[in-house]
Design a protein around this nucleic acid. Sequence first.
DNA 1: GCCAACGTTGGC
DNA 2: GCCAACGTTGGC
Length: 159
Amino acid sequence: MNQLRYWLLKSEPGSFSIDDLAACPDQTTQWDGVRNYQARNYLRDRMQPGDLGFFYHSNCRQPGIVGIVEIRSAGYPDPTAFDPESPYFDPKSRIDRPRWFMVDVRLVEKFSRPVTLKQLQQHREVLEGLTLLRRGHRLSIMPVAPEHWHFILSLAGKL
DNA sequence: GCCAACGTTGGC
DNA sequence: GCCAACGTTGGC
C-alpha cells in the first residue's frame, strides 16, 4: 500500500455543495467534469482509495473549506466526456483513448465551523506553498502537504 | 513553435 | 459586476 495522500477539491456550491454530497446515496458521488490537464493527472495518476481531501467551496459568498471527503476509487474514465448531451462533453475524448478522468468521493464529515479562505490567508507563513493560496491559482484539484493538512484541521478545531 | 485572442476562474 | 490571472486555441 502506498502512502496515503491529502487533497483539496474545489466545487462551486451553486452547482454542487457539501450538502449536495451529504444528500447523495451513501454520501458518495462521482467527481466528474474536471477539464484541466494538471487536475486530470492527479485524478488519473495520483489519487488512490483511502486518500482524504478537503471539500472547498469556491466562487461564493464565503469561500473556504467546509469539510472532509474520502477518495473511494482510483481514477477512471469520466463518462460525461463521451456524452453529447452532457455539458462536459468532449468529442476529443474517445472510449478507447479517454482524455478525462474522475474518482468516487465520499463525505467523511462536514465541518460545523468552516475554515474560511480569509482564515487561511491569515496563516500564510505556516501554509507557505499551499497551492490554494498562490496568486491566480485555478486548479480545482490540488495536493495538500501533510503538515498543511494537519494545521488546517487544527483551524477547524479537529485536533 | 510562437503568441495574440479568447474564454474561464474566482476573489473581491 | 469587475478584473487579474491563467489555460487553451488557432493562425501563421
